[in-house]
Design a protein around this nucleic acid. Structure first.
Lengths: 143, 143
DNA sequence: GGATGTTACTATCATTTCGATATGAAGTCA
DNA sequence: TGACTTCATATCGAAATGATAGTAACATCC
């Protein structure tokens, strides 16, 4: 896919760094506490070549950060940056969509770790409080 | 990418149908009112081969629906289904992320068509009202 | 009525990416 | 010394991508 980072669309901009399934699944796992190469590999069943590339891209793009957790032997792990952590809501919302429209059979559920209640994610406009999608949206392109 | 639709993770389920950048951009355009092959092609600069395939997949997956708008000559257009419309919040949130972390230069803004105010999308838990990401999340896997 | 235009594609094919498997590097541990 | 761990890279066939050209089925203009 061609480089979209020069468009004025923030969605396209977002997709240039995280526009594929593996990257999003890595971010999902990272958000759930995984950090190491082999943890990702085993969790995802991803080929190591691809994993290496995806981790490198996500690191370059500033969603992950390489951190040395052992000097001898030299070992690195990947931790989420602020940008990476802030991607979680997108994933959670995608999950909510998946639950609603691809929810056949047993599905994992996301639970508030403190209250124990199941989370019901919705996107709202912080200004009006209205659910996104219930009011028509217009796009204002910069001059 | 391998088929993830049998996992219990709703995020992975979602990604099996819409896990690539072109599909999401098509859904974005469809949400903004585009419907026809050539509208998508011109808006995205996508090769017609790829566009054909993506439209077919999105139609099979039930996010778009083919509708004949002219009998002679035979012409079809693509309209969003309920599932397709409900994907918009995911895109809007992705856009909010893109604005925050890839927002250099001039960016399009999303405007409430009625009030004219800029939309500030956030994901919240409908139960607690808390912003997603501000409270720790646990995953409950089905037995 | 022939030329040209419109719309939604398909054919072809070089390039790119994916992904499975094997291997390497830099150590530790017994 | 030899097995084990962890984070990768090398190789290579298969699959997807994408640029370009062409086609089918009409409408419209002169």
């Amino acid at each position: 896919m061609k480089n979209l980072s020069d468009t004025s669309c923030p969605i396209a901009r977002g997709l240039t760094c995280v526009g594929d399934a593996w990257s999003m699944l890595i971010l999902r796992d990272a958000s759930l506490g995984l950090n190491r190469f082999d943890e990702f590999r085993k969790s995802l069943g991803i080929a190591p070549t691809i994993l290496t590339r995806r981790l490198a891209t996500l690191t370059e793009e500033g969603l992950l950060e390489k951190r040395r957790y052992s000097e001898r032997p030299p070992r690195d792990e990947y931790v989420l940056t602020a940008a990476g952590r802030d991607f979680l809501p997108v994933l959670v919302l995608l999950g909510a969509w998946g639950r609603q429209y691809r929810g056949e059979g047993r599905l994992a559920r996301y639970i508030d770790a403190e209250t124990g209640a199941e989370i019901e994610p919705v996107a709202v406009d912080a200004v009006t409080g209205a659910k996104i999608g219930t009011r028509p949206i217009r796009v204002a392109t910069p001059e």
